[in-house]
Nucleic acid binder design. Structure first.
Length: 798
DNA sequence: AGCCCTCGAGTTCT
DNA sequence: CTCGAGGGCT
């Protein structure tokens, strides 16, 4: 061996060793400066002697060039998700508080028939789960967890993390070793990174977790290399060419010997008491740990016992994550403001002094409505406890009573009686929780929200038309109604952009770089154009009719087939649509009764908005709409039909099939059919009523029109006809929406929540409470593979 | 008349 | 995700 080769080998050994001592043994032996010196010397030598290159030399940690996308990686053994146990709120006793963990332990004790089974216990780091693959001791690939089955190849980024060895230690490394673990950003490193970023005026990271996740998703590994990431191993994937230990805690020890860092807090514990003691011990240390955690994980230690317990769906029954309660923070209410929503609902929002709650700076929290404010008795200036409900949405939990000084306290909050945006009267309907602005589309806030709703993904899906642009369109009066969108020209948009830039005092981009700005406007116009060929149900939903969400819009579209039939439909007919009752029918009828709304629809049609899916009519609707259906509808809408019961109506409808025939038959005939005289009289009074008679006739005409257009609807007679199916968890081959659409083609009704009426639950990865509920109710559960099989049988495979 | 299920609507921050 | 309330079933 040449001198250079010897020196290179020596340097590589020293650098690897330094990394190992620092990250695995937690006993750094050389300074950062010395470390850097070694690396530089090695780099120089390798540059002079290209023949000594080695893909796993410590100098190769950063070197790869930016890629444009990450390759997909299939995990041969899926990366599991864990079931969670939360503390039961407001529990009086420990027994109650830790019920979920107790149940977990009890199940295991029963199954393995051991009074106090041993668990391997470890903190649950708040980072990003990854899988590392070593072949013959050399790092070959690393991937994110992804959906558990498929992840992204982030090898180049992982190589930059010094805690991840590029070469395993020991004489005889396994042929294949996949190690699972967590990439995280130590708190101190996170703080230091942000301090430096602030000095340099660069972007700071929101919290260590996002920092770790964002860093690994960088396309340029040189950026990842600047991020202070670390790694702890906690499990295995595929392993070949070596005998595994008999339990998990031995495996962790073995991984450490191979040079992989394992969290020093890992331990073993026996029985429920042991687990809870560990939970408390780590909980007390939580603030002084070098990294963020959100709970602890308990894993049954012995592998043979793990196998005995097995899996439910994709979560192991032998492990559970025990989460600490949501972090609460105290802050001050600086103001209470109201927002005006699409429907005019006024929502009070607490503006808070910025406070970091579990890694996210919270400045707003909804107070829902006047009742909620009264219940909490929140006032401006109060100290309040804030937490992120369900880990996402901030909420005010309570006012800190001890800090209230009654003398200095502001007045109780009162909802405004005029809309803060348009000044219209605010009304609160009897029995309703919400207060509403009565301004309708006169109110700029409602107009804006209507436009945002119209353009949103689930409605017309106009890409590029977001809140900011809508703000400007409304402010500069380019758009008053949704129909105006289709009349926008390129020049309009460019002129608007110029005015907005002037207003903001920004550099006039449109002037200096015309090309880019034009491109933006062209794309938007194109997206608006494309939305003209949306579907009928999307258009109906997009119109923003009160009470009409996606489901009802779908039902209406299927029942009537085209917009024209719906806009003319009488409330009597609407009532026959599934899930439409008096309130919803009234709301639809009221919307189309507004000349203003009809005009907007005319304009939309004139602008070429033409839903693609028109024409099909659900035969079930028309079937239920004979004379009986119409009379029943009138009754539900409050027509004066004293004493006329449903059975009487049915009896009449059996014998008489039209209004004309009813008139001809006359009262005596009804009495002969068994309808009591009084009710029969009230029905005939209705036929002479100025309000109801014409409505009934119009409705009857409309029904016969619809009858002429009945077609066989898709899905009729499919294998899932009449069955309610619930999708939960994430699927890998297709999205839930796509799966739902296909199931509907097979006749299924796809619902969002599990009940005893649910015929089938399809559980994807990381399915949660819905899956639990399905099991509780004994509902049939399928995994994704079973679903794909069914879809394939009907040529619906993705 | 009352209960159970769904659907609609609203919300935060990155 | 959560709440409230509309609709339908018993």
């Amino acid at each position: 061996m040449t001198d250079a080769a010897q020196r290179v080998a020596e340097l590589r050994r020293q650098i690897d060793d330094a990394n190992h001592r620092y990250h695995v043994l937690d006993e750094p032996t050389i300074t950062d400066a010395d470390y850097d010196r070694l690396v530089r010397e090695l780099e120089d030598l390798e540059a002079e002697h290209p023949e000594l290159a080695d893909p796993n030399s410590p100098t190769t940690r950063v070197g790869a060039t930016p890629s444009s996308a990450f390759e997909e990686v299939q995990h041969a053994i899926p990366m599991l998700s864990l079931n969670n146990a939360f503390e039961v709120e407001g529990a009086e006793s420990d027994e109650e508080r830790f019920r979920e963990v107790a149940d977990f332990v009890r199940r295991i004790v029963d199954e393995v028939e051991e009074a106090e089974p041993t668990f391997s216990v470890e903190p649950k780091l708040d980072g990003l789960a990854i899988s590392l693959r070593y072949e013959n001791g050399l790092f070959v690939r690393g991937a994110t967890r992804g959906d558990g089955a498929t992840g992204e190849d982030v090898s180049a980024n992982l190589r930059t993390i010094r805690a991840i060895p590029l070469r395993l230690r020991g004489e005889a490394p396994p042929a294949v070793l996949e190690v699972r673990g967590e990439v995280y950003m130590p708190r101190a490193a996170f703080e230091a990174f942000n301090a430096r970023a602030r000095e340099k005026g660069e972007r700071t990271l929101a919290n260590p977790r996002n920092g770790a996740a964002g860093s690994l998703r960088q396309l340029d590994p040189r950026i990842t290399a600047t991020r202070p990431l670390a790694f702890y191993a906690y499990g295995l994937g595929v392993v070949e060419g070596v005998e595994l230990p008999a339990n998990h805690s031995q495996t962790l020890r073995w991984l450490r010997e191979l040079g992989l860092p394992v969290c020093p807090e890992v331990d073993t514990a026996k029985g429920l008491d042991g687990l809870l003691a560990y939970y408390r011990r780590i909980g007390e240390k939580r603030d002084v740990l070098a990294y963020d955690i959100d709970g602890v994980v308990y894993k049954l230690d012995r592998y043979d016992q793990q196998r005995q317990l097995g899996f439910v769906s994709r979560a192991p029954r032998w492990a559970i994550a025990h989460k600490y309660p949501a972090q609460e923070q105290t802050t001050t209410v600086e103001a209470i403001e109201v927002q005006v929503g699409r429907t005019g609902a006024l929502t009070p929002v607490a503006r808070l002094a910025p406070v970091n709650v579990a890694g996210v700076v919270v400045t707003n929290a909804t107070l829902h409505n006047a009742d909620q404010i009264a219940r909490l008795d929140v006032r401006v200036g109060d100290h309040v406890v804030v937490r992120r409900a369900g880990d996402v949405i901030p909420e005010v939990v309570r006012v800190v009573a001890e800090q209230i000084d009654p003398a200095k306290r502001g007045p109780a909050y009162v909802m405004p009686d005029a809309c803060p945006v348009c000044g219209s009267a605010v009304v609160r309907e009897e029995g309703e929780v919400a207060s509403r602005c009565s301004g309708g589309l006169y109110c700029a806030a409602q107009r804006k929200q209507a436009l945002i709703h119209f353009a949103s993904r689930r409605a017309m899906d106009i890409e590029g038309l977001g809140e900011k642009i809508i703000d400007d369109l409304v402010e500069f009066d380019l758009v008053k109604s949704v129909a105006d969108l289709y009349r926008l020209s390129l020049d309009d948009l460019l002129a608007m952009k110029r005015r907005a830039e002037e207003r903001d005092g920004a550099v006039p981009e449109t002037v200096k770089a015309g090309k880019i700005a034009t491109r933006w406007a062209e794309n938007l116009i194109e997206a608006i154009e494309a939305s003209r060929r949306s579907t009928l149900e999307r258009l109906l939903f997009a119109l923003g009719i009160l009470q009409i969400g996606e489901e009802t819009a779908k039902a209406l579209a299927r029942s009537f087939g085209d917009l024209d039939a719906i806009r003319r439909a009488d409330a009597l007919i609407l009532l026959a649509v599934p899930d439409v009752g008096p309130k919803v029918a009234q709301s639809i009828a009221a919307f189309f009764a507004e000349a203003h709304n009809q005009q907007i629809i005319d304009e939309l049609l004139a602008a070429g908005v033409q839903p693609a899916s028109s024409g099909e009519v659900d035969p079930a609707l028309v079937k239920s709409l004979g004379l009986g259906g119409l009379i029943l509808g009138a009754k539900r809408l409050g027509a004066p039909l004293e004493g006329l019961g449903d059975t009487s109506i049915e009896r009449v409808a059996e014998q008489i099939d039209s209004l004309a025939a009813l008139r001809e038959a006359g009262e005596p005939r009804l009495v002969a059919l068994g309808v009591p005289a009084g009710p029969a009289a009230s029905l005939f009074a209705l036929l002479d009523d100025d309000h109801w008679a014409p409505r009934l006739e119009t409705a009857e005409r409309q029904v016969s029109e619809l009858r002429g257009r009945v077609r066989q609807t898709a899905g009729e007679g499919g294998p899932l006809t009449g069955k309610t199916v619930v999708l939960t968890g994430s699927l890998s081959a297709l999205t839930r929406d796509e799966a739902g659409a296909r199931l509907e083609q097979l006749g299924a009704k796809v619902s969002g929540s599990v009940s005893k009426k649910t015929a089938l639950v399809v559980a994807g990865e990381a399915a949660g409470s819905k899956l639990d509920k399905a099991r509780q109710l004994g509902v049939e559960v399928w995994d994704e593979a079973r679903l794909l099989q069914l879809l394939a049988e009907h040529d619906l495979a993705p």
